[in-house]
């Protein structure tokens, strides 16, 4: 579904991606992990065509993403910091995204699930961070695309919404979708992820299930396993 070969990217002198090869050809939840500045967001943005790679190729469903925008119909993306045009109302934003991507009715259920009915007629500029994130989630999940990319989805969410989000993610997995997640909350990752893609210094350091990771690092605890990778490589 997503096929990345020899992906290189540098911002100025800073080499961010140093030959990433990643092939995801089945459904499931993939957590992209790595320390700050390791290139997680850059990979995601490359897939989305927001970052133009220096070299290498990315294919989504067998079509190259280069100079193409149509393939994004197959991807739902939840950006890291959702800042919307502050003069728009929530309902207008939803309407607008539908206008841009195509019609759907899934938004009704999502609005109920995340309880944002009271905010529908408020301007986005007046919303709190958490509410904005909920709107963000609605916008992402209302389209039924085979690939879902979530960049820090838990930011600002209250516990109930977090539970709802997890349910939502599991429901989507059950449909056989491919879900890419980045997160700093290890417990969240451990709970939802089927596979871990660990990125270090612009390369894929590890790809496999959580148990494989634990075996490799010989740590019982997921968080410690991650910490182990980091300390070993920096020592």
């Amino acid at each position: 579904m997503v096929e990345i070969t020899d992906l290189y990217k540098s911002f100025g002198k800073n080499k961010v991606l140093n030959g990433i090869n990643l092939n995801i050809n089945k459904g499931g939840i993939f957590a992209v992990l790595g320390p700050n500045g390791s290139g997680k967001t850059t990979i995601i943005k490359s897939i989305l065509g927001m970052v133009i790679p220096d070299s290498g190729s990315i294919k989504v469903f067998e079509t190259s993403v280069k100079k193409n925008s149509e393939y994004r119909h197959k991807i739902d993306y939840l950006p890291q910091i959702a800042n919307f045009p502050s003069n728009l109302k929530v309902s207008e934003l939803i309407k607008m995204i539908k206008d841009l991507r195509g019609q759907t009715n899934a938004d009704q259920d999502l609005i109920k699930t995340f309880k944002i009915e009271p905010f529908l007629n408020k301007k986005l500029g007046t919303l709190s961070g958490g509410t904005k994130q909920k709107v963000n989630i609605v916008l992402t999940f209302m389209f039924d695309s085979p690939i879902i990319i979530l960049d820090e989805p838990t930011t600002g969410l209250d516990p109930i919404s977090l539970i709802r989000l997890k349910e939502l993610i599991h429901a989507e997995r059950a449909k056989g979708k491919t879900i890419l997640i980045t997160s700093h909350i290890m417990s969240f990752v451990e709970e939802v992820a089927d596979e871990i893609v660990f990125i270090l210094e612009g390369k894929i350091y590890f790809k496999g299930s959580i148990s494989e990771l634990k075996n490799k690092t010989q740590e019982q605890d997921f968080e410690h396993a991650i910490a182990n990778i980091l300390t070993e490589n920096h020592a």
Binding site: R72, Y77, A82, I97, L100
Partner: peptide, 16 residues
């Protein structure tokens, strides 16, 4: 000011 909004749009199937 509309940078984040632009990024939201960039992830949509729209031409740059």
């Amino acid at each position: 000011n509309s940078k984040e909004f632009t990024e939201l749009l960039l992830a949509q199937p729209l031409k740059r």
